[in-house]
């Protein structure tokens, strides 16, 4: 269900909505209990702020970090790295995937390399990339792009090759050109696969940017985590984690929303993660 539908469902008859879908109440309830319990335990037992900060201190750290600009700046830097890296990965993976799926000799030649590269942990290249591209934002963009690239590429190839022989026969029976078969049948048929790749890709792009900053950076949320770790600012570290979590959810909803709009003909859209 879309957010607007959920809202309409609840406001029309709240009693009935809760009876039919108790999770409407249970999900926020669990959140409140968990956060409340956490606060109570930390305060009641006098747990040190250096081990586990109370939710209230995390909220305070968030507030402080945004008002003095530290978190805001780090957020903007990391956001740019992620978006640039992700778009770079998506565009290049799609183009290469399309080429590989259409030209047999390209596939035959490059597939072994792709498989080999895929098994390599891309994160391990991060230190080398830092030497090549520098400590600035560019190296993080490249790392994010590199880790997001392969799932999108592989899904694009599989998707473009998954068109049913019936549909290809239909197009051939109309004397369709290669381009028309690609554009009118293979591409739309591949979209569910491509979006599955994009969904994995965005998670990996976030991971790549943060790990890249861990390895070496002058700004960004990952850089802030290391700084705060050095300063024993545990509340601040949790504040960054909250931002990363919210960012992840926002990216996921964005990709899922675009997917629903683009692949409108799939009835099982609602059940997708």
């Amino acid at each position: 269900m879309k957010a607007a539908e959920v809202l309409r469902f609840i406001t029309r008859d709240p009693g009935r909505a809760i009876r039919l879908r108790p999770e409407i109440v249970l999900i926020p309830l669990v959140f409140v209990l968990m956060v409340g319990g956490w606060e109570a335990v930390v305060r009641g037992l006098g747990v040190s702020q250096l081990i586990l900060p109370a939710p209230s201190s995390i909220v305070f750290a968030l507030f402080q970090g945004f008002s003095n600009g530290l978190l805001w700046h780090g957020f903007l830097v990391t956001l740019q790295e992620i978006i640039l890296g992700y778009v770079l990965a998506a565009v290049s993976a799609f183009l290469l995937g399309a080429l590989i799926s259409q030209v047999r000799i390209v596939e035959a030649t490059f597939y072994p390399y792709i498989v080999a590269f895929q098994t390599l942990p891309k994160i391990a290249i991060a230190p080398i990339l830092l030497i090549w591209v520098g400590f600035g934002m560019a190296s993080k963009v490249v790392i994010a792009a590199l880790v997001a690239f392969f799932p999108i590429l592989v899904n694009t190839i599989v998707g473009l090759k998954s068109t049913s022989p019936d549909k290809i026969d239909l197009m051939r029976s109309l004397a369709a050109s290669r381009w028309k078969i690609f554009r009118l049948v293979q591409l739309p048929e591949a979209l569910p696969y491509i979006f599955a790749g994009l969904n994995v890709g965005i998670v990996l792009a976030v991971l790549g940017a943060i790990v890249g900053e861990f390895v070496g950076a002058k700004a960004g949320l990952g850089y802030l985590i290391l700084q705060m770790n050095f300063d024993m600012d545990i509340s601040g570290m949790f504040a960054v984690l909250v931002i990363l979590g919210l960012m992840g959810i926002a990216f996921h909803l964005l990709v899922a929303g675009i997917r629903r709009r683009v692949i409108f003909w799939q009835k099982d859209n609602a059940n997708l993660p």
Binding site: D166, A175, P188
Partner: peptide
């Protein structure tokens, strides 16, 4: 393949989009 034939298969082979 040529342009002046029309084929109907056992399956309707619709393009769902």
């Amino acid at each position: 393949p040529r342009r002046d034939i029309g084929v109907v298969f056992q399956d309707a082979v619709m393009l769902p989009w």
